[in-house]
């Protein structure tokens, strides 16, 4: 029923740091998440991209030195495709992802809290419907716990180096001055200036 106390403490410490980072990164905010999806605010991509590049170097070093194992999720085509679709539509309406939704609860947002209740119900629906969902999840094929280096029979370090290279190139090429959300919020606070109000 419970992990060991040490492991529970480790999880708590990891989570607290994660929560501080998400809150300070402003990704637990509705306009920042939706701003990313209407391609006007690139905060989410910057946070995620940097995390992936930095994370890959250290995690592959830990794996190579025998201090950790990879934990790759299986590529069940139906589950990943349908899951991604539901996830994307849900996230765009909710305005938070699971982690940032929990962080937004910490900020005090009532809509985030109700969304977390919805998430619990969504997880429950999945558990209850698990047997019936198996054909959907595995129907289109199961490619197992596949990584890009395995799929292409190349060294993982080639991919890590490429990630770092792409990250640095993006950093150098991106326009350096992007208007922050706060700036624009101060600039125009009047409703009804939006185009496309036909729905």
């Amino acid at each position: 029923m419970f992990d060991s106390p040490e492991r529970l403490m480790l999880g708590l410490v990891t989570g607290v740091v994660f929560g501080v980072l998400l809150q300070k990164g402003r990704v637990a905010k509705f306009p920042v998440i939706i701003g990313q999806f209407i391609l006007k605010d690139w905060t989410v991509a910057k946070v995620m991209g940097t995390a992936v590049v930095v994370g890959s170097v250290g995690v592959y070093a830990l794996v190579a030195s025998g201090h950790a194992n990879l934990h790759v999720k299986p590529f069940l085509l139906g589950g990943v495709l349908l899951g991604g679709l539901c996830f994307g539509v849900g996230m765009a309406v909710y305005g938070y992802c699971p982690g940032t939704g929990v962080a937004a609860c910490g900020e005090g947002k009532p809509d985030a809290m109700v969304g977390v209740l919805g998430m619990l119900v969504g997880a429950w629906v999945f558990v209850v419907a698990f047997p019936a969902l198996q054909p959907v999840i595995k129907g289109l094929g199961d490619m197992g716990k596949l990584t890009l280096p395995e799929a292409t029979s190349t060294s993982p370090w080639l991919w890590v180096a490429a990630l770092v290279g792409v990250g640095l190139a993006a950093l150098a090429l991106l326009p350096s001055r992007r208007k922050s959300v706060a700036d624009e919020q101060h600039r125009s606070d009047k409703p009804g200036v939006r185009a496309g109000s036909s729905v």
């Binding site: 899951g83 992802c97 809509d111 919805g118």
Partner: peptide, 23 residues
């Protein structure tokens, strides 16, 4: 709040179908 509840539900259902979310 209704939209947040239903969207949270759909999002988490999708995350579990794919066995993972943004993190």
């Amino acid at each position: 709040l209704t939209a947040a509840f239903l969207a949270g539900l759909l999002m988490m259902f999708g995350a579990r179908l794919a066995s993972g979310c943004t993190s």
